[in-house]
Design a binder for these strands. Structure first.
Lengths: 149, 149
DNA sequence: GCTTGACCTTCCCATGATGGGAAGGTGCAG
DNA sequence: CTGCACCTTCCCATCATGGGAAGGTCAAGC
């Protein structure tokens, strides 16, 4: 099967399949006389594995490890689980950081009438913010009602 | 004041200050005879505004608009609020996507004993996943207990 | 005066995952 | 033979940020 069909079947774009080959995430594909890459059904499962890992946000280097474990019959599921937990912590961390941003922004937006006047608590908040280390102490601008959520 | 001090005072790295100047986010800095950039206190507020905006996750191009509104006395806070809400929606969207990833991964990790055997539901889940459009219908692998959260 | 060290300058390169697009070859159907 | 869909490689772009090299500036200390 050509790369386009492999792409359709695996959900990984042809562009990315070539890229994964270039960085050694998938083995060098067989070539036809024409130079076209040729894929077998077995190759698809690896591509799908990669795509599912990407769908869960795993970075390439962790997927590389996951693939090694996946194809290693003597693997320890403890190692897999540890990897999963590490990534889970990373995801939760990102969520927390985004949640903080969203909460602060929501607070600022709530304080803004949006009635067309120039007066704007959002811009005032971005101007002051008070969370830059210099002149600390007025953190309430940054995290209003601490602990009141 | 030299760029290093401006960086310390604003929380924006010297590297980024130069970059922001290059892309026109801050005006071209005055230069001393030596060629060193020279900053006044007024410049700091702009840099702080940018940093606070970045802290809330605004992309550069939106910060450009925010800066224009900030320095426009005839601005409408409605425009600011709309911009904030757009970004807020973006943040919430990212959170939802990360939350989905984390939930699926948590589910897989919970199913894995991590007792050192090769048997591993996490790898099995990455292999099958069932969410790639081909052979749809078994979405429960992907979103277990739909609606039961 | 000369050295030392901290600072500055510009320029290039790297990240991470993905895509766009150009220039050119392959293969099949009409 | 033409056209079209597909493939190839190569280069560039994203987005915000940093690293580092090569070299200039300046103040303090000897």
């Amino acid at each position: 099967m050509q790369i386009g069909e492999a792409a359709r079947a695996s959900g990984v774009s042809a562009k990315m399949i070539r890229h994964y080959e270039a960085i050694g995430l998938v083995p060098t594909a067989d070539r036809r006389d024409s130079g076209y890459r040729d894929y077998a059904d077995e190759d698809l499962s690896r591509l799908r594995f990669i795509r599912h890992s990407r769908d869960l946000g795993f970075p390439i280097e962790q997927i590389r490890v996951l693939l090694r474990l996946w194809t290693d019959r003597g693997r320890s599921n403890a190692e897999v689980k540890a990897l999963a937990r590490t990534h889970l912590a990373e995801l939760e961390g990102r969520i927390v950081r985004l949640r903080e941003m969203a909460d602060v922004l929501q607070h600022l937006a709530d304080a803004c009438d949006g009635d067309g006047r120039p007066d704007c608590p959002i811009l005032a908040g971005l101007e002051a913010a008070g969370c830059d280390g210099s002149r600390a102490g007025n953190r309430s601008v940054c995290h209003p009602n601490p602990g009141a959520d």
